[in-house]
């Protein structure tokens, strides 16, 4: 009984001397794997406006809207592109998989919080912007089999080690 108490205390105290697990989030961001299902990226020069993404969408958050810009889209003469309402999108990315022309892609952007709900409506132009959120931290085991704890280190540093 008393040995079990001491064992539990020892186990807790042991961890004071190990590495800290916490990742200091706004300053350190995790490196997301390729194909992480964040917000969508639209290649406007590939999209034909067929609307399969809007058909497969489980919650019908995609609507096909005409775009009024000066550019010409030969594959899409009606200039109809998907518009996402992120207040409803569940990031299942069935749209990306079912897209016949590969006009949609994954991005690692997940910080989509807004003060106003209407700002969550992403127009095709906004969707075609490149991703901004590139993290570089990854979990690293210290010691043999992570004896010394787990930390989050920049990927570049790991490679130079």
């Amino acid at each position: 009984m008393s040995t079990a108490v001491l064992g539990a205390m020892y186990e807790g105290i042991k961890h004071i001397f190990k590495h800290t697990f916490t990742m200091k989030y706004p300053y350190q961001k995790v490196l997301l794997p390729k194909g992480f299902r964040g917000r969508h990226l639209l290649y406007m020069d590939k999209c034909t406006g067929c609307g399969i993404c809007a058909w497969i969408c489980p919650e019908r958050c995609i609507s096909m809207v005409p775009v009024t810009d000066n550019k010409e889209y030969p594959q899409n003469p009606e200039k109809r592109f998907p518009q996402y309402w992120y207040a409803r999108c569940c990031f299942c990315h069935f749209c990306t998989e079912y897209c016949p022309t590969g006009a949609l892609d994954y991005t690692p952007d997940y910080e989509l919080a807004e003060y106003d709900r209407e700002l969550l409506l992403w127009s095709p132009e906004r969707l075609s912007r490149p991703p901004t959120n590139i993290g570089e931290y990854q979990s690293v085991f210290h010691g043999k089999d992570g004896n010394q704890g787990v930390t989050f280190e920049p990927v570049i540093k790991q490679k130079s080690k």
């Binding site: 009984m1 079990a4 108490v5 064992g7 539990a8 020892y10 186990e11 807790g12």
Partner: peptide, 8 residues
Amino acid sequence: RIFFSNPS
């Protein structure tokens, strides 16, 4: 050690 064998 810390949870399942913990007498508490």
